[in-house]
């Protein structure tokens, strides 16, 4: 097996595994049960999407994709921070003392 063929198969297997991960985290987003569970699954979904972009960068050899992956990781972090603030505020708004 040549190196080129090997990397071709490796990226294909990685993309399949990441596809399954995408489906699994979407299952958690759909079934919940609480808002926090969905936020957690969305956070994981961002990491999976970042993995997709990385695998495609390796497969195509277009390294510009890496910048997109890093930007997505940054965006995912900020989204999770914002949603965590929302979970916190909503919990207090229910009238319960935190």
């Amino acid at each position: 097996m040549t190196a080129e063929l090997f990397i071709d198969w490796a990226t294909l297997i990685a993309l399949v595994l990441l596809g399954l991960a995408l489906v699994a985290s979407m299952v958690r987003i759909v079934i919940g049960p609480s808002l926090s569970d969905r936020v957690l699954a969305l956070d994981l979904l961002t990491v999976v999407a970042m993995g997709f972009i990385g695998a495609i960068a390796v497969r195509t050899g277009l390294w510009l994709y890496l910048d997109i992956a890093i930007a997505l990781a940054l965006l995912g972090f900020l989204a999770t921070v914002a949603l965590a603030r929302y979970v916190l505020l909503r919990g207090h708004a229910d009238g319960e003392v935190g």
Partner: peptide, 13 residues
């Protein structure tokens, strides 16, 4: 790469 994808899948599972 495959190892990283496998860990991501395990996290999702």
């Amino acid at each position: 790469l495959v190892l990283g994808a496998a860990f991501t899948l395990l996290a999702a599972i």
